[in-house]
Design a protein around this nucleic acid. Sequence first.
DNA 1: CCTCGACGATCAAGAGTCGCATGGGACCCA
DNA 2: TGGGTCCCATGCGACTCTTGATCGTCGAGG
Lengths: 221, 221
Amino acid sequence: MRLLIVEDEKRLALSLAKGLTAEGYAVDVVHDGREGLDRATTEPYDLVILDIMLPGLNGYRVCAALRAAGYDVPILMLTAKDGEYDEAEGLDTGADDYLTKPFSYVVLVARVKALLRRRRAVGASPVHVHGDLKVDTAARRVWLGEEEAELTAKEFSVLEHLVLRAGEVVSKADILEHVWDFAYEGDPNIVEVYVSALRRKLRADLIRTVRGAGYRLETAP
Amino acid sequence: MRLLIVEDEKRLALSLAKGLTAEGYAVDVVHDGREGLDRATTEPYDLVILDIMLPGLNGYRVCAALRAAGYDVPILMLTAKDGEYDEAEGLDTGADDYLTKPFSYVVLVARVKALLRRRRAVGASPVHVHGDLKVDTAARRVWLGEEEAELTAKEFSVLEHLVLRAGEVVSKADILEHVWDFAYEGDPNIVEVYVSALRRKLRADLIRTVRGAGYRLETAP
DNA sequence: CCTCGACGATCAAGAGTCGCATGGGACCCA
DNA sequence: TGGGTCCCATGCGACTCTTGATCGTCGAGG
């Protein structure tokens, strides 16, 4: 799961990024509206956190522009409660939720999770089952049969991405894009390392290598 | 995925081509607008990268000409930020996105991927069935009746191309262009080798040889 | 009907690429 | 300082791709 934070207060942006990274999300931060718009439309995010007061384009306009272009990723707006901007207006322009500053970090994480869950809840629960593998994306827990597996944050993210596209071949480049953030420029070998770890902690034949194409999470046919 | 780069600065063109090839794209380069127009209309590309300042026809005119002819492949424009040309104008002539020079290589790749992704999102169901042959392009799996066949990456690509044009005669040159890239200068015999492998792994009469013309995937049983 | 030439099929081997395992180092947090 | 996570580098092993040689087949024209 990859998030974009558009926030010009650098201290706040940094602390949010840090916390959300620790939760296991890949997080990118940009500091003005124009760049936020560019980035959101060119990189694959699962959620955008958007401040309203921004240099360049303000949050409302970024949000409206994204929605006008058919962008359907959830947007969480951050508003300062000083009267100049109104929360309701945020929802009018197409935001999915808003938070009024100051807010506690715990609340933010809860809202983020709720939005991500709601999105997938178009008929599906946040728990995915494939054969004897069970993945709870909300709680970030994994079971194989009765046994719970202890995964690190990155391991879980890689598995999550494979589970969301179970049965399909997912290329290493694709996994890199979704699980790592914009700043990452390293070797795709890193994906192999994590797949290897998942096979060791779960079951070797769960993730199938498709040589020259990527990996595929086997579904029970 | 096949890309066309229309760019007269040879150093830049070469370095882009090199990088994008490393990303797994088949890349062709031409150096002037007239040739770009010709190539784009005569070869099947998935995306065109188009510089604005070009000898012959400039990028705007190439882009406008393509769009006027109903050409709907995504176009990414490259603009030099020296005031003479304006980014907005590029979008007006029908480009899908633009990048201002100088840009980082990483950003270019991100934009290319975004454009290809946006396009693919509109795509159709990835499972093709012809008689007892079933090809799932997303999962990269192939069945013949109940039996699944194990194909290598190249074998699958060749089959995929034949399936997309099932019933038609596809020339060896055409297969070479799509599965290998335009600049491939090897022996066309390589196609025969792969067709041979497909017949062995699937069924001999599935791919019919049309002497002097190419191959045809049989649709009727 | 036979012969010849062109085209296509098949095979085997070397070169090249891809994926895996492993260990070490950087970094972070307690 | 110590444990854990994350990332990188290396070398090995296995598979894939490609090439070139050889054999088979088709069809036209004598």
